[in-house]
Write a protein that binds this DNA or RNA. Structure first.
Lengths: 193, 193
DNA sequence: CAAAAACGTTGACAAAAGTCAAGACTTTTC
DNA sequence: GAAAAGTCTTGACTTTTGTCAACGTTTTTG
């Protein structure tokens, strides 16, 4: 149940069995059925979640009510509304399950206590956020510097999993495109050129 | 000379006078004239820099040789090619001075030593990257979810300084737009919508 | 298993953004 | 202080992308 969480943790900072037991106290497992929300705009205090199994997405709604997907999360990813988590403010993101999920939840209180009591946790978090930041930078750079066709190819290479598990119109949304445009890009790419 | 660096540091983690002296050993001041590079694509081991005074930009070149600005940095900001810094690999970014600059450089070696010897430094870095990540997330969300006019307004509010010190065509580049399009957005906005 | 919902594609058209070129104005540089 | 470089705007035109609608297919769901 906690397998993947500690596998990923140990990849960054190695823990003894005792340390793992200590950290486990602060984690709350949670299951989510497909389409259920982990977080809705306005919620407070829901924590962040590590994905043991399944897939989720985060999205915002614009004034017209259209969804814009800002992130996906699969096994081994961590997802949440980081700003609202850290500042204990209402969420601006919606996060829901694309598949049935098994999650490990870390509450703000657990997070703060772990930071205080366990330097290795701080290191883990630092490395986690650093990786996330670098990935997001790469995504941003791709968005502003590559023409559409190459941007699509770059995304398929960055996130190969994503393209098998997520409907195309959601990938379009994630890329800031209409579903039709993405469909046309794909057909152009497949017809040679 | 080190004033702003420690002011910002203390905003996140407070340091005693002795601790400040300790950290100072690891910092190298550097001045840069306008248009000089701090970093060029392919460089290794140049570190990251804290801006005491002045302004810089980071950009990538596409195959056609066009520049795409990925970031600006002003007083109090930290800028560098984070991935290449942390992994000691050749930079993929170019970073140059938009104005005469006074910088504080942290080398990879200093960074690693400080992380080892000083838990407060690790905390500072964690908080720094967290803030940077949240800001970048906000930028990305703005890019995919807002129509152009509102996106421009959102940027002017996010970075009020930027719009007084940076030529407009660079802001256009940062937003992933042509200079002409940004100029037209501005004229539409000024002529009362 | 049947009905409903979701999904991906395509066509016709409209809207948005990019490109190229010219011109006026400002700042830099020697 | 004159020439050069950089900057911003505008117009005409082209290309890209979005929108709306329709259709066939697959997946969900009761």
């Amino acid at each position: 149940m906690f397998d993947l969480f500690f596998r990923k943790f140990n990849e960054k900072v190695s823990l003894s069995a005792e340390e793992e037991t200590f950290v486990k106290q602060y984690l709350t497992p949670k299951k989510l059925r497909k389409k259920q929300y982990f977080l809705q705009e306005g919620d407070t205090g829901k924590g962040i979640c590590f994905v043991e199994k399944g897939a989720l997405r985060a999205y915002v709604l614009d004034e017209a009510g259209a969804e814009h997907i800002t992130a996906f999360a699969f096994e081994g990813y961590t997802i949440g509304d980081l700003y609202s988590f850290l500042h204990s403010e209402p969420a601006t993101l919606n996060i829901d399950a694309l598949e049935d999920c098994e999650l490990m939840i870390i509450s703000k209180q657990s997070h703060d206590e772990l930071l205080q009591k366990m330097p290795k946790y701080e290191t883990y978090i630092r490395l986690l956020i650093t990786d996330a930041y670098i990935a997001l930078q790469r995504r941003t750079t791709t968005m502003i510097s590559l023409p559409l066709e190459e941007r699509y190819v770059a995304f398929t290479q960055m996130f190969p999993t994503m393209f098998q598990r997520v409907p195309q119109h959601m990938i379009a949304s994630y890329m800031g495109l209409s579903a039709e445009t993405l469909s046309r890009v794909r057909s152009r790419l497949s017809k040679g050129k």
